[in-house]
């Protein structure tokens, strides 16, 4: 019968309007009702001191009028900014710089005449990652033979200047050590979650404490 299809279509859209289960399956920065504790956390204050210093906002929050934006749910393997880099693990071999398809990693190591012994590493002077040109392919992480460099989970790291987008070694040292589990099966095995979990120490994130010769040969076989 001609004309039934358009009426059926009206029914479908009405169903989507009315049924709550069909709504909001698209994540769109949902607003969440904030408690005073949440607000205090946002302002980096103690909850009790926040209650006394901002009585109006606290009262509004208790009634349920204050909202904060919730971040999108992320998965543990998310490839994002804020690279987690472990100074203790890095030997300064610059594999990451070699593998970067865009050549945006710059490493300078101090070779000032010191003969390195087994187990020691170079002193890293410069480690610049130009996030402004990074495409987050993660090949640098894949290339790192000592599991020193990991992807982070951040996004929305907008700045006002391009120069601020270059992450230098000091910032890498200070950054949160919350490595993404991308190309780190050992972290997946431990069911580590960078978004919910705490920071990971340098001795927890490696495949092995110090790669032995055999293990290195396995990975870098058949040159």
């Amino acid at each position: 019968m001609y004309g039934t299809g358009i009426i059926k279509g009206l029914g479908i859209t009405m169903k989507n309007l009315v049924l709550p289960t069909r709504q909001f399956n698209i994540h769109q920065y949902p607003n969440r009702k904030a408690s005073p504790a949440d607000l205090a956390k946002l302002e980096e204050k103690n909850t009790i001191s926040f209650l006394f210093s901002n009585p109006i906002r606290s009262a509004r929050a208790l009634v349920g009028l204050e909202t904060i934006e919730e971040r999108l749910p992320q998965h543990a393997r998310f490839r994002g900014e804020e690279f987690a880099w472990y100074d203790q693990r890095c030997t300064g071999c610059a594999s990451c710089a070699k593998y970067c398809p865009l050549g945006i990693i710059k490493i300078v190591t101090d070779t000032s005449g010191v003969n390195l012994q087994e187990g020691q590493s170079y002193d890293i002077e410069t480690f610049d990652i130009d996030i402004g040109r990074c495409m987050f392919c993660g090949l640098c992480v894949e290339a790192c033979p000592y599991d020193a460099l990991h992807m982070g989970s951040g996004f929305e790291e907008g700045t006002y200047r391009r120069s601020e987008l270059v992450i230098d070694v000091e910032r890498l040292r200070k950054a949160d050590k919350k490595p993404s589990t991308w190309f780190r099966p050992q972290l997946t095995d431990k069911s580590y979650d960078p978004i919910k979990g705490s920071e990971a120490n340098w001795d927890e994130v490696g495949r092995h404490e110090k790669p032995t010769g055999d293990q290195q040969r396995d990975r870098w076989a058949k040159r």
Binding site: H75, R77, F78, R79, M135, F136, C137, W182
Partner: peptide, 12 residues
């Protein structure tokens, strides 16, 4: 896909 490889569009 994000679960699988950490990205949504440019997957690699």
């Amino acid at each position: 896909f994000e679960m699988l490889c950490g990205a949504r569009i440019t997957l690699s």
